[in-house]
Design a protein around this nucleic acid. Structure first.
Length: 822
DNA sequence: GAGTTTGAAACT
DNA sequence: CAGTTTCAAACTC
């Protein structure tokens, strides 16, 4: 295992999408955990995952070599701390049952499993458990390789306390491996019966065959891991592996499965009840079903991951993976950790200051505990569920943060913002090697989920820099900002992004549909600026420097949380907005156009009377704080959070969907055609100006619109034309339609002559009623208009009009003859 | 940059 | 729910 010392912290936050279809608001609330500022700097970390699972899909021959019974990873291995993703899909047969498996085995074990490529079930004969000779660490490695020896092998690393017993490891491994059903869609977290099927080759004699069913079932000892079961919608089954002797280093493994109404979901929760710090000395890692899913162990279908709450009020909402069933085999995402400089991955942005590099005797093959936190590269990744499994993210440690995780205002914290009906926002923050933080990815969130903000603190040099990420509402603005309307370049504030960073961002877009922004670029962004991702699949996020929030908090002293339910817009509009506030740039009222990397600052508002607390204000409507705007008497800021919340509430009372995106995707056809959810009401613009929200969003008006004289129709031919051409073309069409209509009316009127004349005979002139004459005149006028529009000379125009008149007369006469015949 | 137009939001 | 007013952005000059 190579190590990369000196690499600076790297933080990636990848979005994890939540699916409202599988996870309702209640469900989210049930899973919601709040976080305070001390969450990651105190013993609260103890509540987080303690078991690290590392899977890596690689060729069996290159995976590892066994030397002295010690597993050596010859390849850079990334460590990942994953905050459980939540997905309500799989049904667990164990409902509301919590099992605590207590063991007190002090021996450390390295376990090697071999199973079938499908990993659906571990054949008894295929499983081997090999204790590591140098079992001085609390980590075990399981190699899952195809029984045939062909294909890719997967490494499952499990960090566990020294007291972890072989049974625990086996059970855990077995559970993980058996977490995939035969069809790849059902995840069963039931306690497997690995003991019966596991043949141990352990020479230590510590490994015994245990049946998990025989384990002591107790009430969960994890007070913080409470799961709210909401009326049977989501029931979680917890299997807890815990040490009998709570002590530093003792770890608990909580495997949680949930059951929802229509979909069953499973989750694995790893909890650490020890009081030991979440430091390097006891690297902990949590693997969720989502992770397992992504690693290929589990099906990509519907896996729910749940993270343990850290404290009584600190709950962590699990992210729900949105991935639908994919026939594609999941690959293991390999994020090369800085092997030499790698540091234990933390769940969520752990406070770097509290992490001490203790080169413990721990021999984690995957995690290097040598580097200090400041020096260790740290990458926080909120993984977007929609991403294909196996996407190579790059090197660095990975931290997965649940999309709906609550974040309490404070430095180093992850914020959760409850957004009823809104999508989860994703942010990937990547710190460069120089210690700067990069906002890499903002992904699209799902409705009926909660938004989360992520605060990441990192050391930049000797100064710690904290960046807060606040989800934003997407909407038309984002759409139009992305639109090639780059007309405000002059005088606009520049978003300086190094070319290298831009290139990196481009690379990120290729693999992750993400936009990378170097910290330096972020620092250059004016506060309140919105960085939009050209990627339509990303969500909106506002990044606020911690100091800004802190300052605001200090100013009014009442800033507590960024939880603004309903404040932030959902991101169905599938665009991402990053609002980076660093407080450094004082330029106001300007914004730049879309950057080459698709990032664009937010446009400032100019509100004067609304205090930016009404939907008139785009900032407010998009769930953003006004910053660097031109507004007057603005209350859309942290200093007026109370008032702002009232305004949000008021808006939601008037319209519960007030903060939902106006532009959605058509569901009926299953395509991705965007449409205005509410529709426009244009009357005079013909829906051909930006007054029209549909036109502004570059989408044709739909049946939802109540516009008058709409010309914003979906016509591929017309779309290629300019506005002027479009207008003219539309006029031509209108004229032709009127002409055709008049002609049709004439034909119909002529064919239906009036009543018989007094003489009893039907003469042609009897058909020349006023109506027929009127229609004939309309035909002639329409023809005249058409000739004029075509810029025809008078002679030609007259000829056409006369010809039209002749046609009318002919039709009248023919109609008369038909009438006589009848 | 001032004034006008426009349509969404807010209000009645 | 329809009509009116308010508002800020879009637009024009």
């Amino acid at each position: 295992m190579s190590t990369n010392k000196g690499q600076n912290a790297r933080a990636l936050v990848e979005p994890i999408a939540l699916d409202s279809r599988t996870l309702g608001d209640n469900d989210l609330s049930a899973l919601s955990l709040s976080h305070n500022s001390e969450q990651y700097t105190s013993n609260d970390f103890d509540a987080f995952a303690n078991i690290q699972a590392e899977l890596e899909c690689m060729n069996a021959d290159e995976v590892m070599t066994a030397a002295d019974d010690r597993i050596i990873i010859e390849r850079n291995v990334e460590t990942e701390t994953i905050v459980p993703d939540v997905e309500m899909t799989e049904i667990s047969e164990q409902v509301q049952a919590e099992h605590v498996y207590s063991t007190a085995n002090q021996s450390n074990q390295n376990v090697v499993f071999q199973t079938k490529p499908t990993l659906q079930r571990v054949p008894a004969s295929a499983v081997q458990v090999k204790p590591s000779i140098q079992a001085t660490q609390s980590q075990s490695i399981m190699i899952v390789s195809p029984a045939s020896g062909q294909g890719t092998s997967q490494i499952l690393k499990i960090s566990h306390p020294p007291t972890a017993s072989a049974e625990q490891l086996q059970s855990l491994a077995q559970t993980l491996i058996t977490g995939k059903s035969a069809d790849g869609s059902v995840v069963q977290l039931r306690s497997t019966q690995p003991a019966k099927s596991i043949a141990t080759t352990s020479a230590s004699g510590n490994i015994t065959i245990s049946n998990m069913q025989n384990l002591k079932i107790t009430q969960p000892t994890l007070k913080r891991a409470t799961q709210n079961v909401q009326q049977g919608r989501n029931v979680y089954t917890k299997m807890i592996l815990t040490g009998n002797q709570p002590q530093p280093g003792t770890h608990q493994v909580l495997i949680t499965s949930s059951q929802s109404e229509n979909q069953s979901s499973s989750g694995i929760k790893f909890l650490n009840n020890s009081s030991s710090s979440y430091g390097i000395t006891s690297p902990t890692k949590t693997i969720t079903l989502a992770q397992a899913q992504q690693m290929g162990i589990l099906s990509t279908n519907k896996v729910q991951h749940i993270l343990p709450s850290s404290s009584q009020k600190q709950g962590m909402i699990l992210n729900k993976l949105l991935q639908t069933s994919t026939s594609q085999q999941s690959k293991v995402t390999i994020v090369p950790t800085n092997t030499a400089k790698s540091m234990p991955t933390k769940i969520l942005p752990a406070p770097i200051t509290n992490i001490q590099a203790k080169s413990s005797n721990q021999q984690s093959t995957f995690i290097s505990s040598k580097s200090s936190v400041q020096q260790s590269p740290q990458k926080v990744i909120i993984r977007q569920s929609s991403l294909k499994p196996g996407t190579v993210l790059g090197s660095g440690q990975v931290i997965r943060i649940p999309a709906n995780q609550n974040i309490v205002t404070g430095s180093n914290q992850v914020h959760q913002i409850q957004m009823p009906g809104r999508h989860v926002q994703y942010v990937r923050l990547v710190s460069t090697s120089t210690g700067t933080t990069n906002v890499v990815t903002v992904s699209k969130s799902k409705p009926a989920t909660t938004l989360q903000t992520v605060g990441i603190s990192q050391k930049v040099g000797s100064q710690q820099q904290i960046v807060k990420v606040v989800p934003l509402n997407t909407g038309n603005q984002s759409l139009r900002t992305v639109a090639p309307k780059a007309t405000l370049t002059s005088g606009s504030q520049k978003l300086l992004i190094p070319a290298a960073a831009a290139a990196a961002a481009a690379v990120g877009n290729q693999s992750k549909s993400a936009v990378a922004i170097p910290a330096s670029a972020l620092s250059q962004l004016a506060s309140g600026q919105a960085v939009l991702s050209a990627n339509p699949s990303v969500g909106n996020i506002v990044v606020l420097p911690a100091q800004y929030i802190q300052q605001q908090s200090t100013d009014d002293g009442k800033l507590k949380s960024q939880t603004t339910s309903g404040l932030l817009g959902s991101s169905q509009s599938s665009t991402t907005t990053l609002c980076v506030i660093d407080g450094k740039n004082s330029q106001r009222g300007t914004y730049s156009t879309v950057e080459p990397n698709g990032i664009r600052p937010r446009k400032p508002c100019n509100c004067t009377k609304s205090q930016c607390l009404k939907l008139y204000c785009d900032c407010f409507a998009n769930g953003e704080f006004c910053h660097m705007c031109n507004c007057n008497n603005c209350s859309n800021n942290l200093g007026n959070e109370e008032e702002r919340q009232r305004a949000i509430k008021s808006c939601l009372e008037r319209n519960p969907n007030a903060f939902r995106p106006k532009i959605g995707k058509g569901r009926e056809t299953g395509d991705d055609i965007r449409r205005h959810n509410k529709g426009c009401n244009c009357k005079r613009s013909g829906c051909l100006k930006n007054y029209c929200e549909c036109y502004e969003a570059k989408i044709p008006c739909s049946a939802n619109c109540k516009c008058i004289g709409c010309r914003n129709i979906e016509d591929p031919i017309l779309e290629k034309k300019s506005l002027k051409d479009l207008t003219e073309t539309t006029e031509v069409r209108t004229t032709q339609l009127s002409l055709n209509k008049a002609q049709l009316q004439l034909s119909e009127m002529a064919f239906r002559p009036p009543a018989v004349s007094n003489t009893g005979t039907r003469q042609p002139f009897n058909f020349l009623t006023d109506k027929v004459v009127d229609i004939t005149c309309q035909c002639l006028m329409a023809q005249a208009d058409e000739a004029e529009r075509n810029m025809l000379d008078d002679e030609t125009s007259q000829r056409l009009i006369i010809e039209e008149f002749g046609r009318c007369l002919k039709e009248i006469i023919e109609s008369a003859h038909k009438a006589e015949a009848t």
